[in-house]
């Protein structure tokens, strides 16, 4: 069996090598009882996401690439992945597209691409102070002075470690 047919949420069919099962646990399981010329319906994956997923799979030659660095060490995703193409791929997506892609990869059980997207979101949080994060994500709820004090007393060890810089 060399090719399989994936059907997106919108009903669009895409043919792809069955090697895609190396990257996706969902497809791997389906191929256990797959009959030729059968369509594989991906009810939770839109056509746009499916195209992106296939682009990623084809670039990596259907092999699982090196995972991103964990924990990440820099707010720049390019410093945390071994293949610069991965950084370019994920950098051209906006926040909502990344989250859609995470949901789609979760459905397809594609850990490698999911980790890449999660690492990208983590990069958005890295080395940012509280106020910047609140501003960027439109968080208006504020802690009262008492809660702020409690927060500081919850993690004194972390604060202490940080102040040793």
């Amino acid at each position: 069996m060399s090719e399989i047919t994936l059907v997106s949420k919108e009903g669009t069919k895409i043919q792809i090598s069955s090697q895609f099962s190396n990257l996706s646990g969902f497809i791997h399981n389906i191929l256990q009882d797959y009959q030729q010329n059968e369509d594989i319906s991906l009810a939770s994956v839109s056509f746009i996401n499916l195209q992106m997923i296939l682009e990623y799979a084809v670039h990596h030659n259907f092999q699982v690439p090196q995972p991103p660095r964990c924990p990440i060490t820099s707010p720049n995703i390019a410093d945390n992945v071994s293949d610069p193409w991965d950084a370019e791929f994920v950098n051209r997506l906006n926040e909502d597209q990344i989250i859609d892609l995470v949901t789609a990869t979760n459905f397809l059980d594609m850990k490698s691409l999911m980790d890449l997207c999660l690492a990208k979101i983590a990069c958005m949080f890295k080395y940012k102070d509280i106020e910047t994060l609140r501003k960027e994500y439109g968080i208006t709820e504020e802690f009262t002075a008492e809660i702020e004090e409690k927060l500081k007393s919850d993690f004194p060890w972390a604060m202490e470690a940080e102040s040793n810089d």
Binding site: P71, L118, Y127, D129, F155, E162
Partner: peptide, 24 residues
């Protein structure tokens, strides 16, 4: 689940010193 998975890519300093104080 998304946020927990994202936080797994961060260090304890990021989580405790910055993110914990951002929102409830």
């Amino acid at each position: 689940r998304l946020l927990i998975n994202v936080f797994e890519f961060l260090t304890y300093q990021d989580i405790c010193c910055n993110l914990a104080s951002v929102s409830k």
